[in-house]
């Protein structure tokens, strides 16, 4: 199972989200991100014969609004706080699903039958990165929102 580097992950995410969700994202440094604004999370697990991991998405409310508007075809102004509350988690799960697919593809899933993706789930709590010795991350700013993506990985327990 190949490993990803930060820049490779950033490019994969940028390509995927601009293509499918019309989101124009700008990669930024971790310290430029408004980390306190990230209030909703989604993750999707993956595994291979040797490793296990998860792709974790963290986003602020403005990014969720932008995403829901893009997917539903509405203007951002038309998306209410209630819409963001109802659909933000589902939209982040879809990002986790799409990015998860790209990540395992980059890790060699095309020809490795043992690499598999699980089901995405959303959460109000950030993942505990301390449990994962290997982390690859990228950070984005969109029109008014912040997005963070981490790929967490560790050897499978025998």
């Amino acid at each position: 199972m190949k490993s990803l580097v930060d820049a490779e992950l950033g490019d994969l995410v940028e390509d995927g989200l601009s293509q499918m969700m019309f989101l124009m994202l700008m990669q930024c440094e971790e310290e430029e991100l408004d980390a306190d604004s990230l209030n909703r999370f989604a993750k999707i697990p993956f595994e291979s014969s040797t490793d296990e991991g998860a792709v974790c998405i963290s986003a602020c409310p403005n990014f969720q609004r932008e995403l829901v508007a893009s997917l539903s075809g509405a203007d951002e102004e038309e998306v209410t706080d209630a819409d963001v509350q109802r659909d933000g988690g589902s939209a982040l799960c879809e990002i986790a699903n799409v990015v998860g697919g790209q990540v395992i593809w980059a890790m060699g899933a095309e020809d490795d039958d043992d690499i598999k993706l699980g089901l995405p789930e959303s959460s109000e709590q950030a993942p505990n990165a301390a449990e994962w010795p290997q982390r690859t991350s990228c950070f984005f700013e969109s029109d008014g929102g912040s997005l963070r993506i981490d790929v967490l990985q560790r050897p499978r327990a025998s």
């Binding site: 829901v68 539903s72 799960c93």
Partner: peptide, 12 residues
Amino acid sequence: DDSRVLRMAIRR
């Protein structure tokens, strides 16, 4: 599809 928002995007 299990994602409501993606179903909306596909429907569009």
